[in-house]
Amino acid sequence: MNWKRTFTLLEEKHAQKQSSRRSFDISDAANIALFLAAFVGIWQLVFLLKIWPAYLMPSPAMVITEIGDLIENNSLPIGIGVTLARLAGGFAVSLGIGVGVGLAMVKFRGFGKTMSSFAVGLLTFPSIAWVPFSIIFFGFNDSAILFVVVMASVFSVIITTYSSIRNIPPIYLRAARNMGANGFALFRHVMIPAATPSLILGIRQAWSFAWHALIGAEMLITTLVGLGYILSVGRDINHMETIIATMITIFVIGIIFDRIIFRKIEERVRSRWGLDQHTE
């Protein structure tokens, strides 16, 4: 048929927009290397100028040696392991409760309205202010730390779940219902994927709240393990190398999660949806 041929012609013209998007290419790596070199160079220079004594401002080499020592005596590997386990545990609880409450808010209108003002209010509450409450309630233990982490992030998860689902374009839900989607199938096959781009953004933010709160809680709620605890030990014994070495570790972990894990997921979803067209 004639119109069939015309379609094919139209398709030829409509070149498929295949994007060769890579989040991390050579020039990115070069930029980072350059930035690091400049940073370490300035640090070394400041050290050499002896503005501050070495116990206040150690050299990059001294800090690197310290990192080696901390790895060798196992305090850094154990600290990282414990801290990440607490992060995973606390964040998992936050996600579970937050998504559950968020969904209940979508389901029950009145509860949703009340709860959203309450949760938004608690979003601005400084998570570290939960620490005294938590210590007295739970004692100096993992539960107290987990509690602070959950309180720091759960409201963000609640709000993000609630708003992501409520902001799904109604046309998707109509089309799905029309094709026979109801109840759990609608939720699983339409609401969750449709809300994903916005959910990821919110969860990424909730993760960073959890991470901030965790290090603070570990410093204040002494449990003898964890990166925050190593920091507080460094302060107690006036050992700047330990403090800086741990800070660098915390920084690197943050970068790995945020830049690499979360951004990768986000980019995959966004490119699939075609949400990054304007940046090309």
């Binding site: 046309i171 998707y172 109509r174 089309a175 339409v190 979803v269 699939r272």
Partner: peptide, 10 residues
């Protein structure tokens, strides 16, 4: 529908 009813995640 007029438009926008296809699922962009699929």
């Amino acid at each position: 529908f007029q438009e926008g009813a296809l699922f962009p995640w699929l």
